[in-house]
Design a protein around this nucleic acid. Structure first.
Lengths: 262, 262
DNA sequence: GTTCAGAACTGTTATAGACGAGTAGGTGAG
DNA sequence: CTCACCTACTCGTCTATAACAGTTCTGAAC
């Protein structure tokens, strides 16, 4: 039922580019509710005939909307108003000790709480020299050895997050931290067992468009940015014991923080 | 000096689209340092001649890089590797009381600290019914009256943030909160003077591509997403006294939070 | 009824050509 | 020397055409 969508026509006297005007009309149709999430937009041919323009003009308009994250094109099917996936709230207390005590890693515990099916894959554990930025945060030399733990998290079959953790190699000695499966409670539980009780975290949050590699790993459609979240964990001696560099799909998460006003 | 950039050619046997291959080459040139931030990419004509393809093919490749936020096209001049602007760290304690006491609003104080020239414009103060989402966070009825304060912040002449604050009208009575200039220390100082000492904030952070309106207000080039940060301020009675809905340019900010591990 | 082939739709990639508009640099007139 | 203009270069917009590649549905064959 896209019949009520194509009502406006091009204003030739306007100095606004034709493809932008077409995009404006469609954007407005979404804003006004004439097109709802999941609805199919008029096809390229329909738009060409309605507006009397060339194909490239229509495609430019549709590309604009896609880049805004408003629509999603499906080859052979059509262009649809993007249905926003359910957004999960990432609470800032998700690494609090009380959660860790229950013997589950943060991601698994949180997924269970939200009745989503968690999955972890692409686990890789190596030992290497840390990137300069990580060495700086860990307070170790550039040529120090660190355990590098990378993995990908999915919810209900949809990849939502990749993460790479860096732990100074001397902290991981004699623990399963260097193993693919670090045991119940995750690496934080292991760090605390070896005497490094966690005191606090810092989280730096940035956002940008994904690299092609990131878009592939997270199955991101065009027009969806990523969060880059770099978390540093400190023990009671204010020693940095872990840096975790994670990329999150922004259409899957809202980050939620609580701040004292003291 | 783009002479060393155009080295590769199209692999016709590959099933990867030609424009993607061209984008790959250019992306790699940036990654390997053959093209540095601020450098000019080969012009469309140069790329056409080097690869022996049509103009639209080259433009598709360049558009891809622009959408990734990697490059910026300047009409009449050329396409350049985007120079990342200096990123400002937004600390999570920026609304702490001790900063407020000095008689400056958070934004101004922070800018001064970083030797940047702050500017606030497009100030508008009205009274209206709150959007449903805001009414919910404030814990007031949908048809309650709120003071709506909107403004835009710039640093060194570059707009970086728009903000809209909502304060229940009964809290603003008899204070300069409903005035364009709320006085020293900003509206938080006024709220505390009228007995609503602030206890804590929550911040919800999302990211997405900007609407055309947001892109205009923040002078955002293509390929740069925005943060949407919704902050709720609570007084000592756990009453929500303000909701602030802000849009930030993600190429200007890194949000920094500190979390206890207790 | 089930299955397979094909038609008819969808978006994707590519070609070629034209004109417009912004920028920068040179050149000649004053 | 200064200014105005011209020119050559840049990216931006639009037309027209063509072939390709997925998806969906229909209808004929079995």
């Amino acid at each position: 039922m896209t019949g009520t969508v194509l009502t406006e026509h091009i204003d030739a006297s306007s100095d606004r580019a034709v493809f932008r005007q077409i995009a404006d009309h469609l954007r407005q149709a979404v804003a006004k509710g004439r097109l709802k999430p999941g609805d199919q937009l008029p096809s390229e041919v329909q738009l060409i005939e309605h507006y009397g323009v060339a194909r490239m003009t229509v495609r430019n308009a549709l590309k604009l909307l896609q880049d805004e994250g408003l629509t999603i094109a499906e080859h052979g099917r059509g262009v649809y108003v993007r249905a926003r996936p359910p957004v999960r709230r990432l609470a800032s207390d998700r690494f609090a000790q009380r959660h860790r005590k229950e013997g589950m890693a943060a991601f698994i515990a949180e997924a269970g709480q939200a009745a989503a099916t968690p999955h972890v894959d692409m686990i890789k554990v190596t030992e290497a020299k840390p990137p300069a930025e990580v060495a700086d945060r860990l307070g170790v030399a550039d040529d120090a050895r660190v355990i590098v733990r990378s993995r990908r998290y999915s919810l209900d079959g949809r990849p939502v997050e990749t993460a790479v953790s860096y732990i100074p190699a001397d902290l991981a000695k004699g623990t399963p931290i260097a193993e693919p499966n670090p045991g119940p409670g995750g690496i934080y539980a292991r760090l605390e067992e070896s005497g490094h009780t966690l005191a606090r975290f810092t989280e730096d949050v940035a956002a940008r468009m994904p690299t092609p590699e990131e878009a592939r790993l997270l199955s991101l459609p065009p027009g969806v940015p990523v969060f880059r979240l770099v978390r540093t964990a400190y023990d009671m001696d204010s020693r940095a014991v872990e840096v975790c560099d994670t990329i999150l799909a922004t259409d899957a998460y809202v980050l939620s923080y609580e701040l004292p006003a003291h």
